[in-house]
Simulated assay, not measured.
Amino acid sequence: MVLYDPDGLIEAELPFDREPYECLVKAVLARSGEDTLTTRDYEQIALQLTGHARAVAADLRRRADQLPKKSGPKALADVVLREAERRLSVTPEGTVRCIQNRARLVRALYERLDRLEATRVTRAV
């Protein structure tokens, strides 16, 4: 059976399993010193972070599109999303620098997503 959901509404209702990715981001950003992982390990981490960044960016886009066109929170989300597009257009590499950049991107996307959520909750009250 194929599910028809052109607006991504079903996916929008599913919460992210943030904790494992937040732990991965912390571990990647805490790396300094001796490399004990192989290039292949770094490539796998880069792919994980890239996929998750794309999913969080899609969620951020859906939520930002629900805001008024000239609102400050939407403008800030658009800036973060443009930067995410630019950074995600670069092919991931099997390097520490690459995975740290992807980790920073995931962190920035979650920060903007949390701020949008806080704005939505504040407006609802």
Rank of each mutant, 00 (worst) to 15 (best):
A46Q: 04
A77K: 10
N101W: 04
D78K: 13
A57E: 03
L81G: 08
S89K: 12
R86D: 03
G72N: 09
G51V: 10
L113C: 00
L76P: 00
N101Y: 02
R102K: 14
R63I: 01
K74E: 06
A30C: 03
A84C: 12
G72C: 00
E117N: 06
L47M: 09
R104C: 12
V90F: 08
N101E: 15
E85T: 11
L116H: 03
S32Y: 09
A46K: 07
D35K: 11
R54Q: 11
L67G: 06
V80W: 09
D78E: 15
E85D: 15
G94Y: 13
A77Q: 07
P92W: 00
E34M: 11
I99V: 15
L49M: 07
E93W: 12
A55V: 03
T36R: 12
E34K: 04
I99T: 15
A58T: 07
L24S: 03
R115E: 14
D114N: 13
L14W: 03
I99M: 14
A55T: 10
G72L: 11
T95Y: 11
P20S: 05
E85P: 00
E34Y: 01
L116S: 04
P15V: 05
R63Q: 13
R102L: 14
E83K: 08
Y110K: 12
V28S: 10
E117P: 00
R54L: 09
R102V: 05
L47P: 00
C23P: 00
T39A: 14
Q48H: 07
T91F: 12
D35A: 09
T50C: 05
Q48W: 01
Q48L: 15
A108H: 09
Q44R: 13
L29S: 01
V28M: 13
P92T: 11
L24E: 06
F16K: 05
C23H: 14
A58N: 03
T91K: 15
K70M: 10
Q44D: 01
Q66N: 05
L37N: 05
L76S: 07
Q44L: 15
A75I: 07
A30R: 08
T50G: 02
A58V: 01
A103E: 06
A55E: 08
